[in-house]
């Protein structure tokens, strides 16, 4: 199967699960509500061999409802094609299901996303800080976190 055939089939098969699917710069983008994420990724992995979990991150859109966009990228080492999955979560309850049950690599990347945006990955047993440190207050990549705020762990020498 050529990559475009695979993507056509993915679009066809997943049409009932997603709320929107389109192509952006030659990449298939699936948008769906957060509660369907785990089911969709399960199908992607088992039926379409999207076996490599590439990346998870979030985009903060203050003022929009829901505020955070969680963005996933997957790659199929068999079909040699990538796709993007996006879901929106609100500021009051920025929670989405964790993918650790499907991909080991999700554990670390979800920790980073939790550090930076405060997205709660339900089911990830280990959301300790990874790039930040214990006791860090706030989520630095949120747009309302000022760039120059300092939280030194060791007091500055004067």
């Amino acid at each position: 199967m050529s990559p475009s055939e695979v993507l056509d089939r993915v679009q066809e098969r997943l049409a009932p699960l997603v709320s929107e699917s389109s192509f952006s710069h030659a990449m298939l983008v699936l948008v769906l509500p957060p509660d369907r994420l785990l089911d969709l990724v399960q199908v992607l992995k088992v039926e379409f061999q999207f076996d490599l979990f590439l990346d998870v991150t979030a985009v903060d859109w203050p003022g929009q409802q829901p505020r955070f966009e969680v963005v996933y990228h997957f790659y199929s080492t068999q079909h040699r094609v990538r796709l993007r999955v996006k879901t929106r979560v609100p500021e009051e309850d920025p929670g989405v299901a964790s993918l650790v049950s499907l991909y080991g690599s999700a554990a670390y990347m979800e920790r980073e996303c939790h550090d930076m945006y405060g997205i709660a990955f339900r089911g990830n047993p280990d959301l300790r800080p990874i790039l930040l440190y214990e006791g860090f207050v706030g989520h630095p990549l949120r747009k309302d976190y000022p760039k120059d705020r300092e939280q030194p762990l060791v007091p500055y020498r004067t």
Binding site: T57, V59, G104, S105, Y108
Partner: peptide, 29 residues
């Protein structure tokens, strides 16, 4: 795989730049 996920809102500065860095993912395993 070194990936750049970038989001633009049409400005002269990026809205978001995310790096999918191979080293970070490798540390996870």
């Amino acid at each position: 795989e070194l990936g750049f996920y970038i989001v633009s809102t049409g400005e002269g500065t990026p809205y978001k730049v995310h790096v999918r860095s191979p080293s970070f993912v490798h540390m996870g395993g």
